[in-house]
Design a protein around this nucleic acid. Structure first.
Lengths: 261, 261
DNA sequence: GACTAAGTTTCAAATAATGGAACCAAAGGG
DNA sequence: CCCTTTGGTTCCATTATTTGAAACTTAGTC
């Protein structure tokens, strides 16, 4: 169980390469990739060929660069639709955005990082892939902390081991100890804050979405700015957020365990 | 040489399994998958384990089902942002939607199928099942035919071999011959129509997005309904659509070749 | 308690992955 | 113009991984 995934065989390594291309952010040359990769030339080359054959990567012959392939976009649509909370949560999130007049984020945990799967802006409608799919740090976002607070010891340990603890602002919790203390407080309170810990001027109040068996399904946050609102004002919405989280949890469970099944 | 791609090794097979899960549309049990799979029990089992370990699949222990994992959503965001035309095309598409007052679709070709990568809805939303990440048939959609018309012989052959030629409407081109004849006409005309070939009441006018070297980058369509518009009215927008396609092509090229003009 | 279906593990044989090194093709430079 | 470097591709003997029939373990039924 390697923490960074190159533990299961050829497939794991290939997906590792895929991540490398994704991580680079823009089309990347073979040799650039070679530098960052732990694999020898020939091996990396073969992986790139295979992934390109499979449509997971796209090779640009003119520039000699590899980029992520469109097959991923197709797969992701299916993933988003069948496996994320987003489609189930959409109506509830929409309501919450309207009620609060603020932006609502829906996130899930992926490999110790926060993955935003949907976003609802009171004013303007959602653009699916442009927002959904973004990742953020777990230790300094409202949704991240809300999820961590209700995860099992083992999961939290493994997640904490993956955090960078970069100080984005002066309020950022920059050590595992501070984070753990905060998580304890969140567990009691039932909701988490982001006190400009990730981006200056941005604050939020977040609540976890918990299944009946206690498992963390995701988290929900209402975000605002210090200019427009305050932590106190956001906390006033906490019950509403929790109610919304409960609705989503319940909808998710009845989706997962259909009556006639 | 596989039209269905299980030709390159373990990785190819694993991705095949991934597609199988995606294709099923909802969380799927091991044995369901086993029926549809060409792999023996133990082999399939190991693939599912590996993919689950890797976060490409998510296993629901309560139900014993596999679904696509959230890691895909993350990868897809990167794919969408770095490899599809969508982020580049967005402003142009937006303008076109405003100018025409209709819905604009942006699509690319993936394995002989049309992959919608973006959609811009005018004020009045059209009832349709197309969103970013969704796929559709190439032989009976405006964007599909627009792309096919400008692809190389070999590519068209391979794409045609993958079409189902299901008759969605009475205008649907239901044989390779009819399709090829139509493609020739589109090549001359420079734009393609959808004459309710895919969905009753839905019509569109589409143009390909072509790189300077002639390669097909994608296609663009303006969609309407027979109730609100007509083919003639849509054709009146053809020049505007082509102009937009040209803008996108040019933006795409200057993005890809930042140094050269 | 015996029977069945669904899922998991084992293990020797078969196969595919590995990577050092050779090779090729452009660019660069003396 | 030839020689060198850099970036990319192919070979192939070695090695490690995958493979899948079969045995096994649950969990559920009659």
């Amino acid at each position: 169980m390697g923490s960074d995934g190159h533990s299961d065989g050829t497939v794991g390594k290939a997906l590792d390469v895929l991540d490398m291309v994704a991580g680079h952010g823009r089309p990347v040359r073979f040799s650039d990739l070679l530098d960052r990769s732990p694999y020898p030339k020939a091996t990396l080359y073969r992986f790139l060929q295979t992934l390109t054959n499979q449509g997971m990567l796209a090779y640009d012959a003119d520039l000699g660069t590899y980029a992520l392939g469109v097959r991923l976009v197709r797969l992701a649509h299916a993933a988003w639709a069948q496996s994320s909370l987003a489609p189930i949560a959409r109506p509830f999130i929409s309501d919450l955005a309207t009620l609060t007049g603020e932006t609502v984020h829906l996130a899930q945990m992926d490999q110790g990082q926060v993955l935003y799967v949907d976003k609802r802006n009171a004013a303007r409608p959602v653009e699916m892939f442009s927002q959904a799919g973004k990742v953020g740090p777990a230790y300094c976002t409202g949704v991240g902390k809300a999820m961590l607070a209700f995860m099992s010891e083992a999961e939290v340990d493994s997640a904490i081991a993956r955090q960078s603890f970069h100080r984005f602002g002066h309020q950022t919790l920059d050590t595992p100890e501070k984070l753990r203390a905060e998580l304890a407080a969140i567990r009691v309170r039932g909701h988490a804050f982001d006190r400009e810990e990730h981006e200056p001027g941005i604050i939020c109040c977040a609540a976890p979405i918990l299944a009946r068996n206690g498992r963390v399904l995701g988290a929900l946050s209402v975000t605002s700015t210090t200019a427009r609102s305050s932590l106190a004002a956001l906390e006033a919405e906490a019950d509403r957020i929790k109610a919304c989280a409960a609705q989503i949890a319940s909808a998710a469970e009845s989706w997962r365990f259909p009556e006639q099944g």
